[in-house]
Nucleic acid binder design. Structure first.
Ligand SMILES: Nc1ccn([C@H]2C[C@H](O)[C@@H](COP(=O)(O)OP(=O)(O)OP(=O)(O)O)O2)c(=O)n1
Length: 631
DNA sequence: GGAACGTCCTAT
DNA sequence: TAAGATAGGACGTTCC
């Protein structure tokens, strides 16, 4: 939708007219849209391949578009931020113009579409305020919301997103230019219409390219929630839905439990890293789906938990139940199989299917998409564990979650000991092995071998051997080899990743370092990335014929060059843009922060265009705390 | 000037 | 069914 706003002020439905609405309609699975229509206020020259419908009255335009929606009768409505901007604007504008037949956009006749505020809040996703318009029988599937939930990007503007996924630069028009073109002639309005159609089609293309509908349908089926919940609700509703599905099969009902927000409980162990640069292969072993597999192996569930003393009361023998590291008791599956393990089996089998498809795929972009799908299913499985520990949730059970993390802590410790005790000189190996780092479910081992091939072979052997010490389906896997490996700190490292072949690395992998963080500027991320490349990739080939030094000296030189470019003003300002999320309202912050101050100043200038809760605020630092301006 | 704290964002 | 979990580094501000 385009409207004719006034310069410097964000558009208001009370005063600023809707001048165009473009709609592009496509059947899921087909590659081309079968309807391209633009509704324009005033005449508009024709556009090849599109239907142009001109109206002299804005009210007619709106009414006609609503009828169009009812006639086309779509299952899914998408767009870019249409949920929070376009549709509310249209609804409000229609009310101002008294277009009484407009707000019936659903499939059920006579149910009026109304605008509501809704807000979503969770620890991991922060707080977001959204609008919601009901359209019974249709699903609002706003691409913006999909991207916010599934992709961590520096910027979520349609133009940034379009460049990121399609490598296309989106044409944009300043709002006041649109207003000027509207008051021109049928040719200038055609320019607006062309853009409007393009902007309507773009989200559809992205939705298709990212396979959003397919992946979300799978998630909806696996977890048993409506498609719309996946964009408007959190993880809890998915777990509850699966719990109810399993419970119903067994004739159980779910109790209502209220719980005061209590103390946090302890989670996974992060092994103290032996920081440093390793120019030898480092083997990484990692439990596959650790927490879910713990819950399955030990049959941890609400329905298998024994309260203190009930083992005796029920006359259970010692082989019929287990004691967890936290001192809680659960019956074995021979007595009663838990619901959670069954849910996890089904989620993990969906993940296994997704991983199999991922393996078959050769197109790199589709591979990424399928990896996202696989990770979403892993997330759902881990959320089953998270759900039991969610103290502001519907059915918290810390006995389960604490037992899970307790087992996890024991397991990583045991794995470290096993590996270090077997791979020793006294057992006939080349060197005494050492676990140099590990996080929750993984150990990074220096086995003392010099080739990637050996590191892989020994890794596979070690993983299989350690696995025998644990109850299935718990399984330690050889995951990859890093060579070389730069271990900077807990949760911060980089290395060249070998897993498919021992002779060539697959990629450089960076964890936790600036290069993968969105809260610093691209200049820093790129600089550190190229320094790491010099350090890791060209570590020992400081070829004298090369004019550019590699390895650490090359990295230092490169950093100096970039700093001097920066001081000499040879860096484009776009490289200096930092973005940070606005996670709460200005007055709720305890300390001063640049992006918060900026957002507040913008709000005072024009509240409509200022960053909202949950938006990322882009800014450039132009002056040091003390001293002269930098630019 | 340094410890404590708040915030952001990531790893698992 | 409103809202998965904890661990932890880096950096800026506030407090003393
Ligand atoms: N979003 C996440 C990621 C992880 N974990 C916990 C549960 C996992 O079992 C454990 C290890 O996480 P990994 O990232 O290593 O992933 P998994 O072991 O679950 O899966 P994979 O098979 O990919 O290793 O950490 C979690 O609770 N929530």
């Amino acid at each position: 939708m385009e409207c004719a706003g006034r310069k410097g002020i964000s558009p208001e439905p009370d005063t600023d007219p809707v001048i165009q609405i473009a709609s592009v309609v496509q059947r899921q699975g087909e590659t081309e849209p079968f309807i391209r229509t633009v509704f324009t206020l005033q005449s508009c020259a024709s556009i090849n391949g599109s239907q142009v419908l001109c109206f002299s009255q804005e009210a007619q335009l709106l009414q006609s578009w609503a009828e169009f929606v009812r006639t086309v009768d779509p299952d899914i409505i998408t767009g870019y931020n249409v949920q929070n901007f376009d549709l509310p604007y249209l609804l409000n504008r229609a009310a101002v113009l008294k277009v009484d037949l407009f707000p019936y956009l659903g499939r059920v006749r006579g149910i009026r579409s109304v605008l509501r505020d809704s807000s979503f809040q969770s620890k991991q996703m922060g707080r977001r305020e959204n609008k919601r318009i009901n359209a019974e029988g249709r699903v609002h599937f706003d691409l913006f919301q999909v991207l916010l939930r599934n992709y961590k990007l520096r910027s979520y503007t349609l133009s940034a997103v379009s460049f990121h996924f399609l490598q296309e630069h989106k044409d944009t028009m300043q709002p006041f230019v649109i207003t000027d073109l509207q008051s021109g002639n049928e040719q200038t309005r055609r320019r607006v219409a062309m853009l409007c159609l393009k902007d309507a089609w773009l989200p559809l293309r992205l939705l298709q390219k990212l396979m959003c509908v397919i992946n979300y349908m799978e998630m909806a089926r696996v977890t048993g929630v409506p498609l719309s919940y996946l964009l408007s609700r959190g993880q809890q509703v998915k777990v509850v839905s699966q719990l109810l599905r399993q419970a119903a099969k067994k004739g159980f009902v779910m109790p209502v439990v209220k719980m005061e927000g209590g103390e946090d409980y302890s989670g996974g162990t992060v092994i103290e890293p032996e920081k440093g640069y390793y120019n030898v292969p480092i083997t990484i072993l990692d439990f596959s789906s650790l927490y879910p597999s713990i819950m399955m192996a030990h049959n941890l569930c609400y329905t298998t938990l024994l309260k203190k003393g009930s083992a005796e009361k029920l006359g259970l023998s010692a082989e019929q139940f287990i004691k967890t590291p936290t001192g809680d008791y659960f019956v074995k599956s021979s007595v009663r199989k838990g619901l959670l393990p069954e849910i996890l089996e089904s989620l993990l089998s969906a993940r296994t299917r997704a991983k199999a498809e991922l393996k078959k795929e050769t197109d790199p972009f589709k591979k990424q998409v399928l990896d996202g799908r696989q990770l979403a299913l892993k997330m759902s499985a881990n959320s089953v564990y998270g759900f039991t520990g969610a103290q502001v949730g519907k059915l918290p059970c810390l006995e389960i979650s604490q037992s899970v993390t307790g087992f996890g802590r024991q397991m990583i410790e045991k794995t470290k000991q096993l590996v270090e005790s077997k791979y020793t000189i006294s057992n006939g190996y080349q060197a005494d092995s050492k676990v140099i780092y590990g996080d929750t479910d993984s150990v990074m081992v220096k086995l003392g071998v010099s080739t990637v091939r050996e590191a892989m072979e020994m890794g596979r052997g070690a993983a299989a051997w350690v696995s025998t010490y644990f109850t299935p389906p718990i399984k330690l896997e050889f995951e990859k080899v890093y060579y070389p490996y730069l271990l900077i700190n807990k949760k911060r490292y980089a290395g060249l990743h070998y897993s498919s072949r021992p002779d060539t690395y697959d990629k450089m992998e960076c964890k936790g370092i600036e290069t993968v963080r969105r809260d610093n500027c691209p200049l820093v991320a790129n600089l550190i990335n190229s320094c790491l490349q010099k350090i890791l990739i060209n570590s020992d080939c400081g070829h004298p014929a090369l004019s550019v030094p590699q390895g650490p000296p090359g990295a230092v030189e490169h950093a100096k060059e970039v700093i001097s470019d920066l001081l000499c003003n040879r860096i484009d300002i776009s490289q200096l843009v930092i973005t940070k999320e606005l996670t709460r309202n200005a007055q709720e912050y305890a300390g001063k922060q640049a992006h918060v101050e900026l957002a507040e100043r913008m709000r005072k200038r024009d509240a409509g265009s200022a960053p909202q809760l949950g938006d990322r605020v882009p800014y450039v630092i132009i002056q040091a705390a003390k001293g002269p301006p930098l630019i």
